[in-house]
């Protein structure tokens, strides 16, 4: 059943996703694109782009959109609920305990910070395939966008709008 699969997949992501929206991209890729093959890399990249330019938490945006594309409106509702449920249960039952682990198990938390960086790098690398990079112009677009954000401190919305305009011009 697609609804159960969506529920389990997003519950698992909600339970293990440390490190915010960017790290979540890596979890989603592994589950939704690689294991379940619900979406192609290009479709998935489009979803990430859309969740960057819409308001609200990226995690909710990603869950809703992926859920909708795979299971319609019900799929969207179930995925969004499932991704929030683990932290809901954990925070209400064990919020104090979780917070105490930051001091008690500080090494684990320090390692998790490094892991999150690796996960985000893996997310970016996994997106570097023939679906997203069709020719050398794509490589230039990527390099340009990187410089715009890193060096010139442009926001994601500006960069994505500019790259959309360039897409129209170049292709």
């Amino acid at each position: 059943m697609i609804y159960w699969q969506l529920f389990f997949t997003f519950f698992k992501i909600g339970l293990f996703n440390f490190g915010g929206g960017y790290a979540m991209i890596s979890f989603l890729q592994n589950e939704v694109v690689y294991k379940q093959a619900w979406l192609t890399t290009a479709q998935f990249t489009d979803i990430v782009a859309i969740s960057q330019v819409t308001p609200g938490p990226v995690g909710i945006n990603l869950a809703t959109y992926t859920g909708y594309t795979t299971g319609g409106i019900w799929g969207a509702g179930i995925s969004t609920l499932a991704v929030c449920l683990p932290s809901f249960i954990l925070l209400i039952l064990a919020g104090k305990f979780l917070f105490a682990t930051r001091e008690k198990y500080s090494l684990a938390w320090r390692i998790l910070r490094l892991v999150v960086i690796g996960l985000i790098a893996a997310a970016a690398l996994t997106l570097c395939n023939g679906e997203n990079f069709v020719d050398f112009k794509s490589v230039l677009l990527c390099a340009g966008a990187f410089l715009a954000v890193w060096k010139f401190k442009r926001g994601p919305i500006t960069v994505l709008l500019a790259s959309a305009a360039l897409g129209l011009l170049l292709y």
Partner: peptide, 23 residues
């Protein structure tokens, strides 16, 4: 389609930046 052909490589860049800022 053309719009997203431009957007996709930029998305990769947007994910790459936090790798360095977080590091």
């Amino acid at each position: 389609q053309r719009v997203f052909m431009g957007v996709r490589p930029a998305v990769v860049a947007l994910i790459l930046v936090p790798v360095f800022t977080l590091a």
